[in-house]
Design a binder for these strands. Structure first.
Length: 863
RNA sequence: GCCCGAAUGGCGAAAAUGGUAUACGCAGGGGACUUAAAAUCCCCCGUCUUAUAAGGCAUGCUGGUUCAAGUCCGGCUUCGGGCACCA
């Protein structure tokens, strides 16, 4: 029998209930155990995409299940509202960044609401609002006073045509994305936060947090602690005194005798000195590119390297070594000079080969054989050769011996270095938090006082397309010759402390208050794996700064982390005049070529052919985000939530495809029908189950129910694996479906009722709307949101038969059902005498018997 | 290039700790109900040999450890994420 089902009615009923009963307004309750669950807040890019749905459903499932465990759950949300896309949209569509952001927030707020997430909306944060960013300015002033912030030169991408600074994302293969111009690199003064001061603590504290190992590894490697020596080479010829020695860091001092040249980066001081007299060097320095994603092949381009005009002396052999500059800034970890050892480094081999520099082999292989370096460098370790008194020792011994030797001549020191660099936080952009600093007539920089902040970001009428605070004198001119800093903060600052502000969003008098120590640290933080390094490192660092200022008590902001795998889709583009236009997969039609069967993607709107770029994460810039609205309207919020959780385990990437959502929809309808069928048959009467009076098939259902609760509890609460929670509940539901057809006795119905109750409770965090209604249908007077997580009966799982596998040489030949307390020896003799096994053992000698209790007996025989 | 992951049927995937590979779902095939369609329900569904029974082969490729490997170790391939101004 079918019962009328309307997800729209169900959703409305549940959401109204939560709203009318203030279910998600939360206060601190000192004696109640707290649980702070947080999802990385979204950038209001226009609309949610499936990646958001996945992220926020995981957070909601965890929040709701923790609530069922009796905890006081904080589950806040907000908007990471400052950032570049608002400026880009403003330029493209002639709207103000404020209006664009606000309308996006309004739309996305409604989308989040429609999905039924249990957010504490009264604590919402919008980072572009003064009540949030004013505290950032306040804290910046404190940091400046304590010397954690300093000013230095930063290198930026300069678009000479647009006369603007571009983000890395906007530079594609050295070309500006809008203008198509070749991008130059310039140095400009910027503010830096001393994250390197906290590097060792950031490394050490990784041991105390429950994060995925992969993320910890990435952070360790990013901080990149490494050891080597810094060798001083004497510069030959007339240079200013301060330039008379060239310091070069190396991690391979054992190859010191193999140096045949020194390579300098374009921003090395000796190169800058040479550039004053040599136009070619100057030109090269102006156009150098970052190593980033370039390939080593670039090195082979002859125009990229030049002799600087200076030579140095080798500290031990006194050989004369030439200095070269490379436009290719490949120096690892920000070093500006490196030893050229072409025989033992692939990149030096390429460089020396291109510029005709000599090779000198100084390391043999592990057998003492001289390696062949005619086609490639030899980069492995072995024994030292061609190195005077150091010959015949191992590379590892040579590290110390060579270091001690050159130390005597004051030509080297051991250095522990970090790959991590300080955090440049200035941005030459409009849509961000204004930096609270002013400059006097002489250029003297002075942080503003507490009375002079907050500095409001001036409204932008979008009259011109240049978003730059430098163009708004009413903003920066302060009188008496003082002017404001016209730059804004990196938007990573906002996301580095918003989690703490959620504890006290209503406080207008201070940045944080005592409530942070009730809620922090965040018990569960959920976000995309793409934030594994930058955001998560900056937030950990910022937390430690706040701790050192007495604002928070704990050492780490996020106790446990789930990194959600990204939701990927195809990206499609069309190129005209070197500029790419990206098309949403929903706007692309896939046609089959009749001749060869190839798929041709075309734009639905105009039929033009587009190019498939690949499968990539859903993002605004590639326009491949799938809007969930279509699916919510067609199937309902519960179905979408269920499907997204069922499709793949949370940490795995998910290549989006909506085929299969129909299965989730069917399951929800089936559940609706079973519960109504049960009520139709049983009426409102129900009895209590006595285990001893259950028939075998009734007991079987009861036992499957206990198993399901056990599995669901460990997967939902312990492992946070939701797809298996759903599949195990589906299995039980199928069982109930058949059972209810056969057994409508009073006891049978009682077992059915128990099963339905647990199914609803287990599913309640995942599909909160339908379970809200079905719980009422089952006749409970309180709402399912206030129900407790089900517990299982351990005892009924004992005393059952187990399947033991009989294997011969690891191949399964027979399975036998045995009680758990069987005797191994009796079992062995029984199995060896069984006829089917005897057939396999014919005339073969038994070597060993391997027993794994309640699992396997493996009979190892000679072949 | 460097760092971190991933790879199992036609598809999404399951198998915590090494011990029945493919649970659950989608698609597909067949059937029931129906005037019909939709919906719902039932059966089949990795691959090869053979009518069946039965057996062989299968977890990206490759080599190893083990009585036993999807799972552990080594070497590759392909795909994804990050690489400091996308967030």
């Amino acid at each position: 029998m079918m019962y009328p089902f309307s997800y729209k009615k169900i959703e409305l009923e549940a959401q109204n209930f939560w709203y009318n009963h203030n279910c998600f307004e939360i206060v601190e309750i000192p004696n109640k155990e707290k649980f702070y669950c947080l999802c990385m807040f979204p950038y209001p890019s226009g609309n949610l995409h499936i990646g958001h749905v996945r992220n926020y459903t995981i957070g909601d499932v965890i929040s709701r299940s923790q609530r069922m465990l009796g905890k006081n759950v904080l589950n806040p949300i907000g908007w990471d509202a400052f950032g570049m896309p608002a400026e880009n949209a403003a330029k493209k569509n002639i709207v103000s960044p404020t209006d664009w952001t606000n309308s996006n927030i309004y739309y996305m707020y409604n989308q989040l609401k429609s999905l039924g997430f249990s957010y504490n909306w009264d604590r919402k944060i919008t980072t572009c609002k003064i009540d949030f960013y004013r505290w950032e300015q306040w804290f910046f002033i404190k940091l400046i006073e304590h010397g954690v912030i300093y000013k230095n030169n930063a290198i930026i991408n300069w678009d000479p045509l647009e006369k603007t600074i571009l983000a890395n994302e906007q530079v594609i293969n050295g070309i500006g994305w809008r203008s198509g111009a070749k991008i130059e690199h310039r140095k400009i003064p910027s503010w830096f936060l001393k994250i390197t001061d906290y590097a060792y603590e950031l490394l050490r504290c990784l041991a105390n947090i429950d994060w995925p190992e992969s993320v910890k590894k990435m952070q360790v490697n990013w901080i990149g602690k490494y050891k080597g020596i810094e060798v001083s080479f004497k510069v030959i010829g007339s240079v200013p005194n301060c330039y008379s020695y060239l310091k070069v860091f190396t991690q391979r001092p054992d190859t010191l005798f193999g140096v045949t040249y020194i390579l300098l980066a374009p921003d090395h001081h000796l190169v800058e000195l040479a550039a004053q007299y040599n136009y070619q060097i100057k030109k090269l320095c102006n156009t150098f590119t970052f190593c980033g994603k370039c390939s080593l092949a670039t090195l082979k381009n002859k125009e990229l390297g030049l002799y600087v005009g200076y030579n140095v002396l080798h500290p031990i052999t006194n050989e004369i070594l030439p200095l070269y500059v490379s436009s290719f800034r490949y120096f690892e970890y920000g070093a500006t000079a490196s030893m050229g050892v072409p025989a033992h480094s692939h990149r030096d081999w390429d460089f020396a080969n291109t510029y005709g520099l000599p090779f000198k082999t100084v390391v043999s292989d592990i057998n003492g054989k001289v390696p062949d370096i005619s086609k490639n460098a030899y980069t492995d370790f072995g024994f030292i050769i061609n190195s005077g008194i150091f010959n015949n020792i191992t590379c590892f011994e040579a590290f110390d011996y060579i270091f001690y030797f050159i130390k005597q001549y004051k030509s080297g020191v051991v250095k522990q270095k970090l790959k991590l660099r300080d955090w440049g936080i200035s941005r030459q952009r409009y849509w961000g938090t204004p930096i609270p600093v002013k400059y006097g007539i002489t250029g003297k920089q002075t942080p503003l006082t507490d009375e002079e902040i907050p500095v409001y970001l001036p409204k932008h009428g979008c009259l011109n397309s240049k978003f730059n605070l430098k163009k708004i004198p009413s903003f920066y001119v302060l009188g008496n010759g003082w002017v404001r800093d016209t730059e804004t903060f990196d938007t990573f600052i906002e996301s580095s402390w918003y989690y703490a502000r959620f504890c006290c969003t209503d406080n207008n008098n201070s940045i944080l208050d005592a409530r942070v120590n009730y809620w922090l640290p965040v018990d569960m933080y959920i976000g995309g794996i793409e934030h594994a390094i930058l955001h998560l490192m900056y937030a950990r660092f910022f937390h430690k700064l706040m701790r050192d200022f007495g604002l928070v008590d704990c050492d780490e902001p996020f106790k446990k982390l789930i990194t959600q795998g990204m939701v990927l889709t195809y990206t499609y583009y069309r190129e005209s005049f070197g500029i790419k236009e990206w098309f949403n997969p929903l706007d692309v039609c896939l046609l089959k070529d009749k001749k060869n069967g190839n798929i041709i993607p075309t734009v639905k709107r105009d039929g033009g052919i587009v190019i498939r770029n690949g499968i990539e994460k859903m993002s605004k810039s590639k326009n491949n985000g799938i809007d969930p609205n279509v699916l919510i309207n067609r199937f309902g919020a519960d179905t979408l939530r269920l499907f997204v959780m069922f499709s793949a385990p949370t940490e795995q990437v998910l290549i989006w495809s909506e085929s299969g959502i129909i299965g989730s929809s069917r399951f929800i309808k089936r559940l609706w029908n079973i519960v109504h069928t049960y009520i139709y048959i049983s009426g409102s009467e129900h009895t209590i189950i006595k285990l001893s009076s259950l028939r075998p098939d009734q007991f079987n259902l009861y036992r499957q129910l206990q198993k399901t609760i056990k599995k669901a509890t460990s997967d939902m609460i312990g492992r946070h694996v939701f797809n298996t929670v759903i599949s195990t509940v589906m299995k039980l539901t199928n069982l109930v479906l058949h059972f209810i057809d056969i057994d409508s006795s009073i006891i049978g119905l009682a077992v059915t009722r128990e099963a339905l109750k647990s199914i609803i409770l287990i599913l309640a965090p995942i599909v909160p709307h339908i379970t809200h209604v079905l719980w009422k249908v089952l006749g409970f007077s309180y709402a399912v949101i206030d129900a407790k997580w089900p517990s299982y009966n351990k005892h009924c799982m004992l005393g059952q038969l187990f399947t033991v596998l009989a294997q011969i040489n690891g191949k399964i030949r027979k399975e036998i059902k045995l009680p758990l307390n069987y005797h191994t020896k009796t079992f062995a003799s029984t199995i060896l005498s069984s006829i089917s096994i005897k057939g396999y053992l014919n005339c073969k000698e038994i070597h060993t018997l391997i027993f794994v209790h309640a699992k396997v007996i493996n009979i190892v025989v000679s072949l």
